[in-house]
Every structure is written in structure tokens, then in C-alpha cells.
Design a protein around this nucleic acid. Structure first.
Length: 555
RNA sequence: GGCCCGUUGGAGAAGUGGCUUAACUCAUUGCCCUCUCAAGGCAACAUUCGUGGGUUCGAAUCCCAUACGGGUCACCA
């Protein structure tokens, strides 16, 4: 029995050939230098920070070369699949402005190189597997998992490389008659690739980020077609990236070690291998001080949803990731005042080879810079869309009076060096709650903590004087002059130097006066510039709050 | 354990034989400014590039050895 006949026996229903597929998926008509990249997630859970990193780079590389970025869903592991996670993945990418030009879009597919979901590509894989069988480069394997265990144990006890290869690849030595017989008898089987490689020989490979290096040839007869009728990753990678005409495969560094498999697969299929870029993995220091890959199980930072829920601006995460990708980006973005990062030219040569430790502090820095750059309308709409997804309380506050919210967000914003105190939207309610009357009432009813060196009457005197004398119809400087004047009349020192020179002559400093007012109006020891806070609150509200506090003190 | 990749400060890193008494950024610390905070300004923070040898007038940069860290060895991707 010939190999061709065996192939026919196993896949009688497959009529198409590789040539037919080549015609159906012709080479893309793109300009010289245009890169076709792909992000190929499995729908097994939330978007990992490392995946965001990879997809971001893929997107960037395609965009800056006027190429194509597409998404392919690798759903061949039906056991681990989590329903709906594919859609969610795409949804999350979208919040980062990573939108594919074609491929799997979540609820539908776009493009001429589909289907883009692997479970829908069974026919295509079968054509390729049938071809490999017909040329003797793939064969059915009847080994059970206990057979494989046995082989492994034997190998381990002899301290030789484990796996299904060479002499250990039992089913490789079956003749086609035996194979046909066992298949006809209904014995379960899978299909393995027949490797011609020699572990002792090396192949030269080139990687866009690692450069040239040598690696041992593959000699494993890996499974390419599982008992569930779906291909394994390695095989699907070769077939899909060929027929989808990917020019550069960008993926995590953990794939380097399977590169020899992929190289051999491409060559056996008669396909030209794509360029490869293996990205460093994002790491974290564990409790023992060891570096390890960001882990879904142990690290919050591993899930992109964590940052989204906490309300970090999406842009800040991207900026941070670009910093890891190309360190010259930092200089560039400073020069460009934290704007238009999409104009930055990413380059694989400038990529570091070592996995960076995830740096939360740096993320915070970028988050503050970015939020400080937004105008009041932009930051309001960002806050609002965050609130709609994650924070009901904030949503209600904003909806109560959008203009009022804008004015709060605008305090010390429209100036050369805007305030940089907003980092993530999850802390917004805590920071600005006092601007809202019912929140404010809660705060003062919980009790205000004034400086213990002032007694009740001191505080009431100060507050009454301020209420009578502080006008908001003047500019900031005059306002402050009024406060100073008021303080001095009540024998507070106008500045620190005077006070330090003779503390016994004064009740305190002008800072103490301001603190009393600040605590009264905001319930906090720290707040933005009091003048602007009062402007937003308005004079009547301020007076009302002062009265409330005075009557509380009198009780 | 085999194989592969990597190793410059607390973190990200620049650096490819003399311009490096190791850039820049984050963090940290101190001072200044200031009604508080967030900022902003100024300053400090690796005599040394994992370690040991060598080549050279000269090395973080070249060579050799060694240590350490990470990845990977599935009908998972």
C-alpha cells in the first residue's frame, strides 16, 4: 500500500489539495516592506498583560509599515476554553485602541484569509495533513497514553531525552498495511509528523530581536492531529501563518525552544517560513526575590482587567509597555510632551533581550502625566466611561451635575504645570467626594480633626472672621491677602519667619489659619488650592459649611 | 538534568576598544519654593559594568573559563 493510498484511506472526504489552498489564499498585494502580523490568543481566560504587550507590538509593527494586523483565535484546546472569553479579549483590546484590520473581531470575522477561528479550519488542516501522509511525512499513531508513559519512564531511567522520536517512535515503523488494518478495525489513533531531523545537528536561525543563533534540529515526531480532530499548536501555526500570509510572527520568548519544530514543519509542507520576533517576557520579583514570569494565579498585574478596574488610563499602560519595548521611547515621549505616542517608530533592534520587571511606580508616573495633560472635557469623559463600567457611586456623582464635575476636575488644570494628583479613577470618589453636600455631611458627622493646639473658641473665632472677610470676587492674590490680613488681626503670624523669630507673640501662623479653613470646608488636611476649591463650591456653600461646623463645635 | 536565551544602580536602560571621573527616565533621600497636598526647581544616589583570568598603551565594550537568573522539554497554547 502506498502512502498516497493510506492518505486516501484516512481522509477520503478531502478532495482539495495544497495547490487549491494556495490559489484560494494568494499572496497579499502589499507595498514593499509592509508587514503582516497577527495576534493569536486562545480563548482561555482574561487578557494577560504579556498578551497585551505582544498584541500592542504586533499592531504597531503592522501600522507603521502600512501592513496588516489581524487576530486569529486559537481555540483548539476545547478542554480549557472559557465561553465568551474570545469576545472579551477583543473588547479589552479595543479599550487600548488595538483594533485589527482583519480577522476575528469578537462577534464576526472580516477579511479574505479566513476563517480566522481555528476550530472552523478543520478542512484546511486536513488537506495539509493528507498531503504530509501522502508524501510519507506523517503517519497514524496508535499508542495510548499508557504506552507513552511507559516510553517516558524507560527514557527517564536511562537518562536519555524523553519524547516520541527515533527508535522510540514505535508507530513510525508500522507498514501501511498494518496501519490500514488497525484503522479499519476502529482502533483510535492520532497523526504524528515524521521528523527527519537529527538532535545532534544544529540549524541556524534568525530572530528579529535575538539575532542569529544556533539550535539543535528537531527530531520529535510530534502530534499534529489530535483525537478530537483538531490540530496542535505547532501544526496550526505553520498552516495558518502560511495561508494567512503572515510576514512576521511576533510572540513570547517561550516559543524559541519550539522553533526547530516549526522550521521543519514549514519545510516539510513546502512553505516559506516567516520572520520571527520572540519578545522578552514581563517578569516580577516573587517573595523570595526570584524573578518569574507574571503569573495569572499570583499576580494582579498579570490581568489587564486589573488596571482597567482600578481606572488607570489605557494610554498609560501602553506608554509603560512601550518603555519596556524600546527604551529610547522614554526620551522621545518626554520630547513630545506625552502626546502622540502613535508617531513613535518602534524598532526590534532597540528591544532589550531580558525580561523586564513590571514597575508599578513607573506606570503611576505615566498615568499622572497623561491625566494632567487632558483638558476638563477629556478627563470628564474618561472618568465617566470608567464609572459606567466599574464605579456606580462615581457615575451618580458625575450624572448629578456634569458641569460641576468638570469644574472640580478643572481646578489648577488650565495652566503651565497642571496638578498631577489624579492617577487612577478608582480613587476619585475619595479625593473629590467633599465637593458634594451629602458626602461632605457624612465627613463632618464622622468628626473633624483640628490641630489640638487650638481650642474650640479659637477655631470659631477664626472661622467667623474668615466668613465675614473672605471675598471670592477678587483674584487669588487679593484673596490670600485678605486671609492674611484676617489672620494677623487675630494675632497669627503672616509668615513662618516672623513666627519662628518670636513664637510666643503669636497664636500660630497663617498656615494654621488656612488649615482650619481647609479642614472645615473639605474635611481634609490636604486639598488643592483653597481659593479654587472655594470658587467651585461658591461663597454661599462655603458660608453654609462654616456655619455647620461652628454649630457642630458648639454642641 | 539536556538544550536555548540572558547578566550594566532599587527599577527601565544608554553604551559596539580611548569623547565614560558609565547618559537619560522612574523610584528613593535631602534642600528650596509654598496656605496644605500634588507639582516645580536644585542636589545626592554604580570608582564600576555577575565573577576570575587573558589580549591591549588603554576594556562595560574583544577572547577564555566559571557563577547566577530565566525559558523549554504534552493528544496546552
Amino acid at each position: 500500500m502506498t502512502d498516497l493510498e493510506l492518505a486516501e484511506l484516512i481522509f477520503p472526504e478531502v478532495k482539495l489539495t495544497i495547490e487549491d489552498l494556495e490559489k484560494r489564499y494568494p499572496k497579499r498585494n502589499l507595498k514593499e516592506g509592509a508587514e503582516v502580523t497577527r495576534f493569536a490568543p486562545s480563548p482561555t481566560g482574561f487578557l494577560h498583560t504579556g498578551s497585551l504587550f505582544t498584541s500592542f507590538i504586533c499592531h504597531k509593527v503592522a501600522n507603521q509599515s502600512n501592513g496588516v494586523f489581524y487576530v486569529r483565535l486559537e481555540d483548539t484546546d476545547t478542554k480549557r476554553e472559557i465561553a465568551g472569553s474570545g469576545e472579551q479579549l477583543l473588547e479589552q483590546l479595543k479599550t487600548f485602541n488595538i483594533v485589527p484590520n482583519e480577522g476575528y473581531m469578537g462577534d464576526h470575522e472580516e477579511g479574505d484569509y479566513g476563517p480566522y477561528v481555528q476550530s472552523k479550519r478543520a478542512d484546511i488542516y486536513k488537506v495539509c495533513i493528507k498531503y504530509l501522509i501522502s508524501i510519507g511525512r506523517a503517519y497514524p499513531c496508535f499508542c495510548s497514553s499508557s504506552d507513552l508513559d511507559e516510553i517516558r519512564k524507560k527514557q527517564e531511567s536511562h537518562k536519555i531525552i524523553p519524547g516520541y522520536y527515533g527508535q522510540f517512535a514505535k508507530c513510525r515503523f508500522l507498514n501501511n498495511e498494518e496501519r490500514a488494518e488497525r484503522i479499519k478495525n476502529g482502533e483510535p489513533y492520532i497523526i504524528r509528523f515524521k521528523s527527519l531531523g537529527n538532535h545532534l545537528r544544529k540549524i541556524k536561525v534568525h530572530d528579529l530581536v535575538h539575532g542569529d543563533f544556533e539550535i539543535a534540529q528537531n527530531d520529535q515526531d510530534i502530534v499534529i492531529y489530535k483525537s478530537d480532530g483538531l490540530p496542535t499548536y505547532h501544526f496550526a501555526h505553520a498552516v495558518d501563518d502560511h495561508f494567512m500570509r503572515t510576514t512576521t510572527v511576533i510572540r513570547g520568548e517561550e516559543w524559541i525552544s519550539s522553533l526547530p519544530i516549526h522550521v521543519e514543519l514549514f519545510s516539510a509542507l513546502g512553505f516559506e517560513a516567516p520572520k520571527y520576533a520572540h519578545l522578552p517576557v514581563i517578569m516580577k520579583l516573587d517573595e523570595q526575590g526570584h524573578k518569574r514570569k507574571l503569573s495569572k494565579r499570583y499576580d494582579n498585574e498579570a490581568a489587564v482587567s486589573y488596571f482597567l478596574k482600578d481606572g488607570y488610563p489605557a494610554e498609560s499602560l501602553l506608554m509603560y509597555l512601550m518603555t519596556i519595548a524600546n527604551s529610547n521611547f522614554e526620551e522621545w515621549i518626554f520630547l513630545h510632551k506625552f502626546e502622540h505616542m502613535e508617531e513613535f517608530k518602534f524598532s526590534f533592534d532597540k528591544m532589550s533581550l531580558e525580561g523586564a520587571l513590571f514597575d508599578m511606580g513607573k506606570l503611576s508616573f505615566f498615568a499622572k502625566e497623561i491625566l494632567a495633560k487632558k483638558n476638563k472635557d477629556e478627563i470628564t469623559s474618561l472618568a465617566y466611561s470608567y464609572a459606567c463600567s466599574y464605579n456606580e457611586e462615581l457615575k451618580l456623582l458625575i450624572e448629578k451635575d456634569k458641569e460641576y464635575f468638570k469644574e472640580i476636575m478643572n481646578i489648577e488644570r488650565e495652566k503651565e504645570n497642571p496638578r498631577k494628583d489624579y492617577e487612577k479613577f478608582s480613587s476619585l470618589v475619595e479625593m473629590i467626594g467633599f465637593f458634594y453636600e451629602d458626602k461632605y455631611d457624612q465627613i463632618i458627622n464622622n468628626g473633624l480633626t483640628f490641630n489640638p493646639k487650638f481650642n474650640k473658641n479659637d477655631i470659631i473665632t477664626v472661622l467667623n472672621a474668615l466668613k465675614d472677610n473672605l471675598s471670592l470676587d477678587v483674584d487669588e492674590q487679593s484673596w490670600f491677602a485678605l486671609m492674611k490680613e484676617t489672620g494677623i488681626k487675630l494675632s497669627f503670624a503672616g509668615n513662618n519667619k516672623e513666627y519662628k523669630a518670636a513664637p510666643e507673640n503669636y497664636k500660630g501662623t497663617i498656615g494654621d489659619v488656612a488649615e482650619i479653613l481647609r479642614i472645615t470646608l473639605t474635611g481634609k488636611k490636604n486639598s488643592p488650592n483653597l481659593y479654587y476649591v472655594m470658587k467651585v463650591l461658591t461663597k454661599p456653600v462655603c458660608d453654609n459649611r462654616i456655619n455647620k461646623v461652628i454649630s457642630l463645635l458648639n454642641n
